[in-house]
């Protein structure tokens, strides 16, 4: 099956790895990702801070391109792009005049004829499908995962349909259970990590990250699993800083869910995470991945 695919800017830059892994994992699931032709930036949170019109017009252009493919579904792995695009689609639907006005400038227009899905909505559905059943699973040993969703998967700035429980989402837990990775219940799975404020309000953002880390540790987790590139970047790249600031001794890897799925599907460590280091908490890959590595 073919799906329209919007990677977004961060999957071409700081989260290149996520793009690579998503493509590999979807291929194994028999889903071909058709990247939108000449897609442009969705404006992320920044557009809406400056210009409300452009905050809708930027994703509208991508929606138009996606609809022109005639595919039924558009998958967006980045949580920010997903939120922006989904919200813009609903705002256009609620405001036909605005939709018309924006469409006048677009070579490929949008009429709301495509379903916008996060990566989790697709994975959640696929683990119940035949294709998933037929994939031999490699056991991943030694992990206790705290699934960290962040803000943008269940909370939106506009009233849209939410795909999961707002306060206690379950999609990642369900997917990880299907590949045999144990998960745990914890408090801060949807607490904000500070997102881009790490750049301009660093200390406050570090305090939030430390809160998340402490709760995960207190529950006995040894890794975080995420789907948002901003959460992944903050929780991993700032880990030394926020842990030192708050006297936390332990460190843990922050995996994109695609990394664990890839390993479970028998993709080698080097292929799913080229040049990846050993997990910082000292778990050995050979122990974790059974005989697939």
């Amino acid at each position: 099956m073919d799906l329209a695919y919007y990677p977004g800017c961060s999957l071409y830059q700081s989260a290149k790895l996520y793009n690579h892994q998503t493509n590999l994992v979807f291929e194994r699931l028999g889903l071909h990702l058709q990247e939108l032709d000449d897609w442009s930036c969705c404006g992320a949170t920044s557009a809406g801070k400056i210009n409300d019109f452009m905050a809708i017009a930027l994703p509208a252009r991508n929606l138009g391109i996606a609809e022109a493919t005639n595919l039924p579904e558009l998958v967006i792995p980045c949580a920010a792009c997903y939120s922006r695009t989904k919200v813009a689609q609903k705002q256009l639907q609620d405001n036909p005049l605005l939709q018309n006005e924006i469409n006048l400038e677009l070579s490929r227009q949008t009429f709301g004829n495509i379903k916008v899905s996060s990566i989790l909505e697709v994975l959640w559905r696929e683990i119940n499908g035949e294709r998933f059943e037929s994939i031999p699973l490699t056991k991943i040993e030694g992990l206790k995962a705290a699934c960290y969703y962040g803000c943008m998967y269940t909370r939106f700035p506009y009233d849209v349909e939410v795909a999961d429980n707002v306060e206690n989402p379950q999609a990642m837990e369900t997917v990880l259970k299907a590949i045999g990775v144990p998960t745990l219940d914890w408090n801060h799975k949807t607490l904000c990590c500070g997102a881009s404020s790490v750049v301009y309000n660093t200390e406050a953002a570090l305090d939030l990250m430390a809160k998340i880390m402490k709760d995960a540790l207190a529950r006995g987790a040894n890794c975080l699993v995420v789907t948002c590139p901003m959460c992944q970047m903050n929780m991993e790249s700032q880990q030394e800083k926020y842990c030192r600031k708050h006297g936390i001794k332990e460190r843990m890897p922050v995996y994109f869910i695609t990394e664990l799925l890839g390993l479970a599907f028998g993709i080698s460590r080097e292929e799913i995470h080229p040049g990846g280091n050993l997990p910082p908490n000292g778990l050995e890959w050979s122990k974790m991945c059974g005989d697939s590595v």
């Binding site: 800017c9 442009s40 930036c41 404006g43 992320a44 949170t45 920044s46 557009a47 801070k49 400056i50 210009n51 452009m54 930027l58 881009s196 404020s197 750049v199 301009y200 309000n201």
Partner: peptide, 12 residues
């Protein structure tokens, strides 16, 4: 704060 979002928006 303002500089970050302006830079991001202008760049896009």
């Amino acid at each position: 704060y303002k500089n970050f979002h302006k830079a991001f928006f202008n760049h896009s």
